[in-house]
Protein backbone atom coordinates (compact mmCIF):
# COMPACT_ATOMS: atom_id res chain seq x y z
CA UNK A 1 0.00 0.00 0.00
CA UNK A 2 2.92 2.32 0.64
CA UNK A 3 4.83 1.21 -2.46
CA UNK A 4 4.34 4.66 -4.03
CA UNK A 5 6.34 6.27 -1.18
CA UNK A 6 8.97 3.59 -1.50
CA UNK A 7 9.24 4.03 -5.26
CA UNK A 8 9.59 7.80 -4.77
CA UNK A 9 12.46 7.35 -2.29
CA UNK A 10 14.01 4.74 -4.55
CA UNK A 11 13.99 7.10 -7.54
CA UNK A 12 15.58 9.87 -5.47
CA UNK A 13 18.45 7.55 -4.60
CA UNK A 14 18.78 6.38 -8.21
CA UNK A 15 18.97 9.97 -9.49
CA UNK A 16 21.64 10.84 -6.91
CA UNK A 17 23.71 7.78 -7.75
CA UNK A 18 23.43 8.37 -11.50
CA UNK A 19 24.50 12.00 -11.10
CA UNK A 20 27.42 10.93 -8.94
CA UNK A 21 28.60 8.49 -11.62
CA UNK A 22 27.77 10.68 -14.63
CA UNK A 23 25.24 8.18 -15.98
CA UNK A 24 22.34 9.37 -18.11
CA UNK A 25 20.49 6.23 -19.13
CA UNK A 26 19.06 3.81 -16.61
CA UNK A 27 18.91 0.19 -17.70
CA UNK A 28 17.96 -1.73 -14.61
CA UNK A 29 17.72 -1.50 -10.87
CA UNK A 30 17.91 -4.24 -8.28
CA UNK A 31 15.91 -3.93 -5.10
CA UNK A 32 16.08 -6.42 -2.24
CA UNK A 33 13.39 -6.76 0.36
CA UNK A 34 12.70 -9.12 3.24
CA UNK A 35 9.59 -11.26 3.46
CA UNK A 36 8.37 -9.30 6.47
CA UNK A 37 8.73 -5.84 5.04
CA UNK A 38 5.15 -5.73 3.75
CA UNK A 39 6.17 -4.95 0.18
CA UNK A 40 4.03 -6.17 -2.69
CA UNK A 41 6.44 -6.68 -5.60
CA UNK A 42 3.77 -6.07 -8.28
CA UNK A 43 2.68 -2.82 -6.65
CA UNK A 44 6.27 -1.63 -6.40
CA UNK A 45 6.77 -2.49 -10.05
CA UNK A 46 3.62 -0.59 -10.97
CA UNK A 47 4.58 2.45 -8.87
CA UNK A 48 8.04 2.46 -10.43
CA UNK A 49 6.55 2.33 -13.92
CA UNK A 50 4.09 5.15 -13.23
CA UNK A 51 6.71 7.39 -11.64
CA UNK A 52 9.27 6.91 -14.41
CA UNK A 53 6.83 7.36 -17.30
CA UNK A 54 7.73 10.33 -19.53
CA UNK A 55 11.00 10.85 -17.66
CA UNK A 56 14.55 9.97 -18.73
CA UNK A 57 14.29 6.89 -16.52
CA UNK A 58 11.34 5.45 -18.47
CA UNK A 59 11.76 1.88 -19.64
CA UNK A 60 14.26 0.82 -16.97
CA UNK A 61 13.79 -2.66 -15.63
CA UNK A 62 13.11 -3.17 -11.96
CA UNK A 63 14.46 -6.43 -10.56
CA UNK A 64 13.07 -7.38 -7.20
CA UNK A 65 14.57 -10.03 -4.93
CA UNK A 66 12.75 -11.29 -1.90
CA UNK A 67 14.85 -12.45 1.05
CA UNK A 68 13.48 -15.26 3.18
CA UNK A 69 12.73 -15.00 6.82
CA UNK A 70 15.47 -16.49 8.96
CA UNK A 71 15.39 -16.85 12.70
CA UNK A 72 17.66 -18.04 15.48
CA UNK A 73 16.18 -20.18 18.21
CA UNK A 74 16.44 -18.49 21.60
CA UNK A 75 17.02 -21.82 23.32
CA UNK A 76 19.33 -23.96 21.18
CA UNK A 77 20.58 -21.24 18.78
CA UNK A 78 19.67 -23.23 15.68
CA UNK A 79 19.16 -20.98 12.67
CA UNK A 80 16.12 -21.83 10.62
CA UNK A 81 14.07 -20.43 7.78
CA UNK A 82 10.38 -21.12 8.12
CA UNK A 83 8.62 -21.31 4.78
CA UNK A 84 5.06 -21.15 6.00
CA UNK A 85 2.72 -18.21 5.60
CA UNK A 86 2.55 -17.95 9.39
CA UNK A 87 6.31 -18.14 9.57
CA UNK A 88 6.59 -15.98 12.66
CA UNK A 89 4.86 -18.66 14.67
CA UNK A 90 6.97 -21.55 13.52
CA UNK A 91 8.54 -23.60 16.30
CA UNK A 92 12.26 -24.34 16.21
CA UNK A 93 12.75 -27.42 14.01
CA UNK A 94 15.51 -28.62 16.33
CA UNK A 95 14.16 -28.28 19.85
CA UNK A 96 10.54 -27.26 19.32
CA UNK A 97 10.78 -23.98 21.26
CA UNK A 98 7.96 -21.67 20.15
CA UNK A 99 8.67 -18.33 21.79
CA UNK A 100 11.19 -15.55 21.60
CA UNK A 101 13.25 -16.38 18.51
CA UNK A 102 15.54 -13.68 17.15
CA UNK A 103 14.80 -12.39 13.68
CA UNK A 104 17.97 -12.51 11.55
CA UNK A 105 16.66 -11.55 8.12
CA UNK A 106 13.28 -10.57 6.76
CA UNK A 107 13.02 -6.83 7.39
CA UNK A 108 15.45 -5.60 4.71
CA UNK A 109 14.54 -3.00 2.14
CA UNK A 110 17.43 -1.71 0.09
CA UNK A 111 18.65 -0.80 -3.37
CA UNK A 112 21.47 -3.19 -4.25
CA UNK A 113 22.75 -1.93 -7.57
CA UNK A 114 21.98 0.04 -10.70
CA UNK A 115 22.87 -0.77 -14.31
CA UNK A 116 23.25 2.46 -16.22
CA UNK A 117 25.10 4.07 -19.13
Amino acid sequence: MHEMSIATSLLNIIRQEMDKHGATKLISVKVVFGKLSNIVADSLDFAFEVLTKDTVLEGAKLEIEELPLTMRCCKCETEFSPELANAMFAPCPECGEEFGHTLLTGKELYLENIQAE
Partner: peptide
Protein backbone atom coordinates in the same frame (compact mmCIF):
# COMPACT_ATOMS: atom_id res chain seq x y z
CA UNK B 1 28.13 0.21 -16.13
CA UNK B 2 27.10 -1.35 -12.87
CA UNK B 3 26.84 0.97 -9.91
CA UNK B 4 26.87 -0.96 -6.65
CA UNK B 5 24.74 0.98 -4.24
CA UNK B 6 23.39 -0.93 -1.24
CA UNK B 7 21.43 1.93 0.27
CA UNK B 8 18.41 1.64 2.49
CA UNK B 9 15.48 2.83 0.39
CA UNK B 10 13.87 4.55 3.35
CA UNK B 11 17.10 6.33 4.29
CA UNK B 12 15.60 9.78 3.66
CA UNK B 13 12.82 8.99 6.10
CA UNK B 14 15.22 7.46 8.61
Amino acid sequence: MEIPVVRNILEAND
